[in-house]
Amino acid sequence: MSNVSASFPWYYRPLSWLLMGLASLPLAVLYVIADGIYLLLAYGLRYRWKVITENLGKAFPKKSAAEVERLGKDFYRHFSQVVVEILKLQTISAEELRRRARFQNPEVMENAFQQGRTVLSLGSHAGNWEWILSSAATYFPGKSHGVYKPLSNKFFEYFMRRLRTRLGAELVPMRDTLRDMIRQRGQTRTLALLTDQAAGPEDQPYWTDFLHQDTGFYTGADRLAARFQCPVLYVGIRRVRRGYYDIILTELYDGVSPIGADEHFITEAFARQLERDIQAAPAEYLWSHRRWKHKR
């Protein structure tokens, strides 16, 4: 685990103790708490309900209002479980996480590692996205790095960094991605990016039809793969049952073939894979963020 120092105001100490106490509870107990969170979200707070139902209505235009309402509540149930599962990363053992979040085809990553390659792993806010990096750190020790956006709140930045690196993963601030790639050129590792956030005009996004919407995607993976000749994998995750996930790797680019004229074919392939996964399990995507807030 990378060095994570605790430099936050003293008045966050009680919250830190509370969260650590909760994380020490068995997952079976935490899922009871998750059921309570679900009821509070679905029938009390209605957290970001308008954003959720608008997103679902746009993504699934053939569904009725009642079906969208049901999907929204299914999302709340999924989200509540993911919240406690993420918290459990503070105490879960590497053995238990490997049992609960299993790479179905780790050889896809291992084949690239055998060639001494840096691999770009593209993920999204689907399933339990936070378990993927920590699980990868148990499958591929010393080789799992994740790009992340630092939080402005000092306590939550400390808490989430410790949570994410506890089982051996390393973190790279988003603004340092290119510098990190140059510094570690030729290292055998995977650099994971969540590339489904809503890219704004200043990001010069790649626009494509995604879930029936004109959608802008970040193009960092295209540029990094072209510059460093990195293999690129799509990382899909699906819930098998409560508390258990399958992680599936799909090669998008082998790191050898010429990029050609279609400079954004990696991002396009990522969008198509993600679209299929969302359509297969619509409640397991993070619908509470404004995915289509930017226009071309």
Rank of each mutant, 00 (worst) to 15 (best):
L224M: 11
Y76P: 04
V68R: 03
E275V: 11
Y253V: 07
A226I: 01
K149R: 14
A261F: 03
D176R: 15
Y12C: 05
E263A: 12
K58R: 15
T267F: 08
F79N: 02
L171Q: 08
R227W: 14
W10T: 08
T138F: 10
Y12S: 05
R164V: 12
L56K: 07
G116H: 15
Y158C: 00
S64F: 14
Q197G: 02
F113K: 06
E170D: 14
L40V: 08
G21K: 11
D246L: 12
P26R: 11
R296Q: 09
G260D: 02
L97G: 09
E268V: 03
Y148F: 15
L18D: 05
G220C: 08
V232Q: 11
G216F: 03
E85G: 07
F140I: 14
R290P: 05
G236M: 08
S121Q: 02
L249R: 15
K154L: 01
L40H: 00
G168K: 07
A126T: 04
Y285A: 02
V29P: 08
Y206V: 14
K50M: 00
N55C: 05
T177H: 11
G36Q: 06
R166L: 14
T118E: 01
L97E: 14
T53K: 06
R162L: 00
Y234E: 00
F265D: 06
F79D: 02
L56G: 06
S257V: 11
R238E: 15
F156G: 00
I92E: 02
D203R: 01
Y218H: 13
G127H: 14
L22F: 13
R179W: 11
M160W: 14
I33M: 15
T250K: 13
L18M: 08
K149P: 00
R296P: 04
R185E: 07
L87R: 09
P141F: 15
G216C: 13
A34T: 03
T165A: 10
R241V: 14
A101W: 08
D222F: 05
S124P: 05
S135N: 02
A226H: 06
H145I: 00
F75Q: 03
I132V: 13
E284Q: 09
D214A: 10
I33A: 15
G21N: 12
R117A: 03
I247F: 04
E54Y: 02
E67L: 06
T118D: 07
V83Q: 11
G127C: 13
W17G: 04
D222S: 09
H294K: 09
I248G: 01
I52Q: 06
R175N: 11
V147P: 01
E275W: 10
K295A: 12
F79V: 00
Q115V: 13
G123E: 07
N128W: 05
S135M: 02
V32K: 04
Q273K: 14
W131I: 06
